[in-house]
Design a protein around this nucleic acid. Sequence first.
DNA 1: CCAAAAGTGTTCTCCGTACACCCATGT
DNA 2: ACATGGGTGTACGGAGAACACTTTTGG
Lengths: 182, 182
Amino acid sequence: MSEIFLQQFHTFGDVVRYTNFSKQETMAKLGLPEDVTHELVSRDVSVGYYALVEFANAVPTPDFFTEECRWWDIDQIPALLFDHNDMIKLALKTLRRQLSYQPIGYNLLPDKFTMPDLQQLYETILGQLLDRRNFQKRMLGYDILERLEERKTGGAHKAPYLYRFDKEKYEKALADEILFVG
Amino acid sequence: MSEIFLQQFHTFGDVVRYTNFSKQETMAKLGLPEDVTHELVSRDVSVGYYALVEFANAVPTPDFFTEECRWWDIDQIPALLFDHNDMIKLALKTLRRQLSYQPIGYNLLPDKFTMPDLQQLYETILGQLLDRRNFQKRMLGYDILERLEERKTGGAHKAPYLYRFDKEKYEKALADEILFVG
DNA sequence: CCAAAAGTGTTCTCCGTACACCCATGT
DNA sequence: ACATGGGTGTACGGAGAACACTTTTGG
């Protein structure tokens, strides 16, 4: 996958990073010997990024230490090792904040999409329903969408217009708001 | 110094991080041999934090690799090694954004201070002048300031009121807004 | 008395929110 | 015909920005 929306959100570096499981449990789960001197001589630092991807296209594969690696519904994530649940919580919080003053969706929607499509994406990320009329006004207000003459036919009801991101304006809007892409 | 306002803002981890000086120049300035394989086998990661301190109380001391370590006016910082100028730029940008929706000043002002004192702090950080009346309304709107009966006398003009941060409300306001302190 | 700084209130605009009606389409 | 979803416009309220007059104080 290329051209992924990837956003650094925080670096985690606490000396003690066990939230759900004790160090003993953690080491046992990892199949590692418990190194009692570890915290005294070293520190693990994790740089957190979140990405927006069409999840059906991204196939998670476990690494050597990983028992299982797959997609989860955000509300059903089980207790993870270390502070990884905190990481996810913070990623979502940051993404939601970013979404509130930032257009998002370029890499998540097909080239042409309808306003309801975009709204559903927002509602999924925010975890709440939005007002159709206000949503549309806000999105159009960003001045990054181009409405096509075409409509999406084949649906069961009134045919909605198709829109396309104006790539240039979209990139510009992102650059103005995002502090750093790296 | 203790109780410092310290905020992580970004982690820098590009493979190539020379902005102002070439690798040759950089290594020469550091008095290090130029290791041509360095970028192939390792990567330097810097976790950036900014702090707000009363700068007169913080005495910078150079470390082994540092030629000079002292305070600079933000507009007069010379060309630094690596991407350190970018780091400073981003720190300021983040701080300014944070300031726009966040009360700040607890560790930077004396226990009792006047509204003009606070405004001057904001103007210094933001690098622009603010309207007295609107500034005051906004600050009071945060509901974290307590106005004392006292006024600051001895000035050349009308005596301004003294204010004090309501520590409890101040902490609460910070906790509500700051995503992560770590 | 006068200059300079500080206290205070009103108006306007913009943005976000709440809300209602009409239109198109497949069943 | 009708249920469902989509297109569109209006009204209200709060926050920020623009802006002026009065009061105090030292010189």
